[in-house]
Design a protein around this nucleic acid. Structure first.
Length: 293
DNA sequence: CACCAGGTAGGAT
DNA sequence: ATCCTACATGGT
């Protein structure tokens, strides 16, 4: 991967080349992140364009030259996005080499089908909000609730004169009522978590979790109401980048039942289990569910 | 107008 | 330990 500064429309941007196994469309569709949007495209050498909201906001153009992208930010911000998208570590090759020793036709197809997927580092706050909302819910409502929450309670900041919805910090959520966000019965979970008289405990709880290993972090997370095994695994994986986490939801249950005859051994994939789960999940959903492929 | 959604808590086997 | 079910809403 090479990075260089260029000027686009009078603004400093970063041109990234030779970046492979990175496809924002796939990442957006993979269901790990609800805050990426596809934008209308105007440039002729631009294949797709996306906007990503996190601590900051960035527009990314996918160029027609394979492996080439334009990140609309400066080099300093690019460092953060590089970490966010996990651009330095390519789990594709890791799974490829494990597959050589543990043949798995389904996973092989899943790897090729979703080869552009990366596991993001969304941070614990973003992950808690997104995946507590995600339980027994559908994607479009999850996205809507999250967006409304950010617009209603978030403080807007930027250095380019563009209004955007930033990451919410606990300090911005303490004592809020969470009504009118369409959260349904999950509303109560948030009210408990961000109750004013729980703030000190909340911050202690978080600061312990972020320095613990996967097993301890998962146990800790599950102490909160509204966080069970699956949501805890998602927070560990997409928030804290614990790659051992292997979230099992209704789709993964069906997949393991139909494709692996009720048993899938993650042991060989310990160091990239979460990535393997994403590949399986993304490919299985593309098949419509019941197909054994 | 039913049925479903990247589950969980609380209670009953 | 392992089932069962109610759960609030909006999407399809």
């Amino acid at each position: 991967m090479r990075q260089s500064e260029i000027i686009v429309d009078g603004l400093l941007c970063v041109l990234v080349e030779d970046l492979h196994h990175f496809d924002l469309q796939q990442i957006m569709e993979s269901g790990q992140c609800f805050r990426i949007q596809e934008l209308p495209v105007n440039g002729s050498n631009i294949l797709r364009s996306h906007s990503v909201s996190w601590h900051e906001h960035v527009k990314i153009d996918t160029l027609s030259t394979p492996g080439s992208f334009i990140f609309h930010c400066n080099m300093r911000q690019m460092k953060k996005w590089s970490r966010y998208f996990n651009l330095d570590m390519d789990y594709y090759e890791m799974v490829k080499s494990i597959l050589a020793e543990h043949p798995d036709p389904f996973l092989e197809k899943a790897l090729e089908y979703g080869s552009g997927i990366r596991i993001l580092r969304q941070g614990i706050y973003e992950a808690i909000l997104a995946f507590m909302i995600s339980q027994n819910n559908n994607i479009s409502r999850i996205t809507k609730s999250l967006d409304m929450m950010h617009w209603k309670y978030g403080v807007c900041r930027d250095d380019r004169g563009i209004r955007y919805n930033p990451t919410l910090l606990p300090s911005e959520l303490v004592g809020k009522d969470f009504t009118e966000l369409g959260l349904g019965y999950r509303e109560q979970y948030f009210r408990e978590m961000f109750a004013e008289d729980n703030y000190v405990h909340f911050m202690d709880w978080i600061s312990a979790i972020v320095i613990q290993d996967y097993a301890a972090a998962k146990r800790g997370l599950m102490q909160a109401k509204g966080i069970g095994t699956k949501v805890a695994d998602c927070i560990c994986l997409y928030g804290l980048h614990h790659m051992e986490a292997y979230p099992i939801d209704t789709w993964m249950k069906k997949l393991i039942e139909n494709v692996y005859d009720g048993h899938f051994d993650v042991t060989p994939y310990q160091k990239c289990a979460g990535y393997v789960q994403q590949l399986q999940f993304y490919y299985y959903r593309s098949l419509g569910g019941e197909n054994h492929a």
